[in-house]
C-alpha cells in the first residue's frame, strides 16, 4: 500500500463507488470528458460545450451580466442570513437592525454586504443594459431577450425599493412615502394600487409586512424565473454577443 498523499487520496475518492454514482465521467483530461463536465451537470449545462474563443475576451462583454448575477447570488445568501434575525413589525424591525449591528456576531458585515451588493446589482444591471445597447446586441434574434432584460431591470429596482423600507428607519420611511405618493398620481389605478401595496392609506405596519413578503418571497421568485429565461435565451440565441463585426459581411446571418 502506497503512503497517503493528496493525489492518492484524490484517486481513492474518485474511484469510490459513491463518487462514481454522483459524477460518472473521469478526470477532465480529454475533450470528451470536458464535454461531459458541462452537460452532465445540472448547474453547468446552461453553457454550451464549446464557446467561441473571442467571447472570452474581457472587452467582449465586460462581464457585466455575470457581475450582476454574482451580486444576486450574494444577495440571496446574505438575505437569507438576515431573515433569521428580522421581524417585519413595528418597531421590532428597527430593534432588529440595532441587534444586528451591536449584538449579532458578524451582523454588521452581512448587513453591509447585503446593502452594497444590492447597489452593485442595480448598477451592474444598468451598465449591462448600456453595454448591450452600444454593442447593438439587441438586434434579431435577441429582441425578446432584450425585453426580458428590461423586465429584469424593473424587478431589480422593485427588489431594491421594497428592501429599502425594511430597516424601518427615517431614511426608509420617507423614501418609501415619497415613492408611493408618486404612484398615487397615476390616473385611475394609482390610488387603489397604492392602497393595495401599502395595505392602508399610510406607510404603516401593514406596508412593512407587505414589502417584506414582496422582498423576500414574491420578487425573488419572479426574478429567478426571468433570469432562467434570460440565460436560457442567451444560449438559444447563439451565445453572448459582443461588439458588432468590423466587416458587416461577417455578421450573423439572419
Amino acid at each position: 500500500m502506497s503512503s497517503l498523499t493528496l493525489s492518492t487520496l484524490t484517486a481513492w475518492v474518485r474511484n469510490s463507488a459513491v463518487y462514481r454514482s454522483i459524477i460518472r465521467h473521469g478526470v477532465a483530461d480529454t475533450n470528451r470528458n470536458r464535454s461531459l463536465v458541462i452537460f452532465e451537470n445540472l448547474f453547468l449545462h446552461v453553457h454550451p460545450v464549446k464557446v467561441r474563443e473571442k467571447t472570452l475576451k474581457f472587452t467582449h462583454t465586460f462581464w457585466l451580466g455575470g457581475i450582476t448575477m454574482v451580486a444576486t447570488f450574494v444577495l440571496f445568501a446574505t438575505g437569507i442570513l438576515l431573515m433569521f434575525y428580522y421581524h417585519p413589525s413595528v418597531p421590532q424591525a428597527y430593534r432588529d437592525m440595532k441587534e444586528l449591528m451591536f449584538v449579532v456576531d458578524n451582523g454588521v458585515f452581512y448587513r453591509n454586504m447585503h446593502r452594497w451588493a444590492a447597489h452593485l446589482m442595480v448598477l451592474g444591471a444598468m451598465l449591462h443594459m448600456l453595454r448591450v445597447f452600444y454593442h447593438r446586441a439587441y438586434r434579431p434574434p435577441r429582441q425578446f431577450n432584450w425585453v426580458v432584460g428590461v423586465v429584469l431591470l424593473l424587478i431589480t429596482l422593485l427588489l431594491s425599493y421594497t428592501g429599502y423600507l425594511l430597516p424601518w428607519d427615517q431614511l426608509a420611511f420617507w423614501g418609501v412615502s415619497v415613492g408611493t405618493n408618486m404612484a398615487k398620481e397615476a390616473p385611475l389605478i394609482g390610488k387603489p394600487l397604492r392602497f393595495l401595496l401599502l395595505g392602508g392609506n399610510i406607510v404603516s405596519e401593514n406596508a412593512l409586512l407587505r414589502f417584506y413578503v414582496l422582498h423576500c418571497v414574491v420578487l425573488p421568485a419572479v426574478l429567478m424565473l426571468f433570469i432562467s429565461v434570460h440565460i436560457w435565451r442567451i444560449r438559444k440565441d447563439g451565445g453572448v454577443q459582443g461588439p458588432p463585426e468590423k466587416d458587416p459581411g461577417e455578421e450573423v446571418e439572419p
Binding site: A28, N31, R34, S35, V37, I38, L44, H47, P48, V49, K50, V51, R52, E53, K54, L56, P140, P141, K236, D237, G238, G239, G249, E250, V252, E253, P254
Partner: peptide, 20 residues
C-alpha cells in the same frame, strides 16, 4: 433560423476549463 451559422468559421474552445 437560429443564429449560430456564420459566414466565417471561428475558433472554438472547450467551455470547461476555458470559460468556467
Amino acid at each position: 433560423t437560429r443564429p449560430t451559422i456564420r459566414r466565417r468559421e471561428e475558433k472554438w474552445v472547450m467551455t470547461f476549463p476555458h470559460l468556467i
